[in-house]
Simulated assay, not measured.
Amino acid sequence: MNEKNTLGLNSCFLDLSDPYQLFEKWFEEAKKNEPNDPNALALSTSTKEGIPSVRMVLLKEFNSKGFIFYTNLNSKKSNDIKENPNVAMCFHWKSLLRQIRIIGKVSQVSNEVADKYYDTRGYESRIGAWASKQSSILKNREELMNSIEKYKNKYPDEANVPRPDHWSGWNLSPSSIEFWLDGDSRIHERLKYIKNEKDSWDKVLLSP
């Protein structure tokens, strides 16, 4: 028998007032079931003129303040964010037939937070942060490989590669988080958390 929570939804939605707790539960399930990159998400940004752009990025941390990803600050996504901090995230876990949509505003993480994560990256990834002018046009692939070699020569000590000023993290502070579960005959189950004026969360059910 399919157990239900107090809202009449599948028991996987639990009965939690804090969406971060529910996200953590679903994320842990995804890490057990998704074969590749359970932390992958579609990130949607737009320019100040409202022209949208979407790409896949990796979630690196989340807490009660939001959801953090890292990138080149001169990339297309970062330039969009500088013009328009309103963004959206979407996680889709096919193995679980679940989806999570998050909407909110993005702000840059502190240098301390960025340094701490950067230092956990592999040597090649840290060099890549220096070598790649993300989203810029390459004359050819050799141009990028030469840049990588240049920075390997500059920073040969694998334990001592400083974080570039142009590389950091963005934190999405959500105004809403929607949890979605696939249903038979497209009668899906949807639960949305909306942040209210008291900085707490209201829960609403959405029609599929």
Rank of each mutant, 00 (worst) to 15 (best):
Y123P: 12
Y123S: 10
Y123C: 13
Y123E: 11
E124A: 13
S125V: 02
S125A: 15
R126I: 02
R126D: 04
R126T: 02
R126A: 01
I127C: 09
I127D: 11
A129E: 07
A129G: 12
A129M: 02
W130M: 11
W130Q: 13
W130N: 13
A131I: 00
S132L: 10
S132D: 13
S132F: 12
S132P: 14
K133F: 06
K133N: 14
Q134I: 10
Q134T: 14
S136T: 15
I137N: 09
L138I: 12
K139S: 09
K139W: 00
K139H: 06
N140R: 10
N140T: 13
R141G: 05
R141T: 09
R141Q: 11
E142M: 08
E142T: 15
E142K: 15
E143R: 12
L144Y: 15
M145L: 15
N146I: 12
I148M: 14
I148Q: 04
E149A: 14
K150P: 01
K150N: 11
K150G: 00
Y151E: 09
Y151P: 04
K152W: 13
Y155V: 04
D157L: 06
D157V: 02
E158P: 03
A159K: 15
A159V: 00
N160P: 01
N160I: 00
N160F: 05
V161M: 11
V161F: 09
P162H: 08
P162A: 08
P164V: 04
P164R: 03
D165I: 08
H166Y: 08
H166S: 08
W167T: 03
W167I: 02
W167N: 02
S168D: 00
S168L: 00
S168K: 01
G169Y: 05
G169P: 07
G169R: 06
W170E: 07
W170I: 08
L172W: 02
L172N: 02
L172A: 04
L172Q: 04
S173F: 03
P174V: 05
P174A: 01
S175H: 00
S176W: 03
I177A: 04
E178L: 05
E178Y: 06
